[in-house]
Design a protein around this nucleic acid. Sequence first.
DNA 1: CGAGTTGTTCAATAGTCATTGAACAATTGC
DNA 2: GCAATTGTTCAATGACTATTGAACAACTCG
Lengths: 195, 195
Amino acid sequence: MSVAPREKARPEGDRLAQRVLSVCDAVGDYIEAWGFRSIHGRVWTLLALSRGPVAQADIADRLGVSRSLVHLAVTELTQYGLVRATSAARNAPIEANLDVWPTITDVIRGREWMLIERARVALEAALAEAEFLGEESPYDPERIRLLLAMTGLAQSVLRTVLAVPIPRSLEAFAKWVRRASKTINKLEDTLALLS
Amino acid sequence: MSVAPREKARPEGDRLAQRVLSVCDAVGDYIEAWGFRSIHGRVWTLLALSRGPVAQADIADRLGVSRSLVHLAVTELTQYGLVRATSAARNAPIEANLDVWPTITDVIRGREWMLIERARVALEAALAEAEFLGEESPYDPERIRLLLAMTGLAQSVLRTVLAVPIPRSLEAFAKWVRRASKTINKLEDTLALLS
DNA sequence: CGAGTTGTTCAATAGTCATTGAACAATTGC
DNA sequence: GCAATTGTTCAATGACTATTGAACAACTCG
């Protein structure tokens, strides 16, 4: 979370612009904590809050970063499907895709699942070896099985998250977000039975 | 995920030791993707799989890293409550705390919540300003409200996760992990109703 | 004791990665 | 058509951070 460079040469706009930049920084820091680039969060947030599409040079100005950085971020965000050009023109202004759910599930399906699966496979291999050796081995099969159960639980959770239905239109997504918040609260009771 | 240094001077133990190191690397890479240090995951995993407590020098040998690094990792893991010395002695061997749930919830309560809350507060401030200005402002109050709904949803999810009861003993934890995996699968149906 | 081992500290290093600036290409508007 | 703006590429830089090595302290055990 290197904040210093961001406060260097940022334009002194109106108060709203300042508040929006605060949001961009907050989102940037957040997704940085999740192992992604802070600039991605900042660019997406700026576009998400803007009324219409914004040119790359404009984005760079408002965020106070170089055009090269904005360009890199935009191309990568486009690949993620989080952002799109409003036309095929080279200098078409960019708009945000507010439906981030498909991207989140993509990340889970890709990075997250792969990393857990790798641990699970390694644990299976270790378990086979540890069971082959007897009591003398410094590693405990019982403990390996516990870690295996934990990876299994993690994969169950991920599968559940992936099973959440994806609303297609933006309005449906907004509606879903509001309703899901309430429904999730009810799930607390179900989970509380697991004591 | 800098893998190179790890394959530098690692001891050629028996096959089981190699498999265990694979697990350590897998877990290390995993928690690194979550914004933590890879060495923490490797040290904890090694201890978690070991039958008994292990001396710091021994950990360093098995992982093929310096004692300084192990020492730093152990002190930090101790603060997190993920690892503990078996006595007050200076050179007491270290053992893993297998019940990682309290640490996970601590992270959620701390880092995760704080980051989202910061975004929410910034969004509220921006919303007030955007509503004050009228149609002419380049930022759309409606979009700010949508992002606010998304942070609200994220906080609901976090609250739900924090409400999961924590089993106290290790056996209870292991049992809970196995049962939770099944129960979580049933929750898919509930979530599927949210289309 | 005293040699060997282990824990602890810290300054130095080495590798990584976000970010920039400059140079060039494409596009727009006058 | 020409100036100004915008997008694109890439090598260079600057900052950060994990990791090490050396030096010292504490402990063990013969």
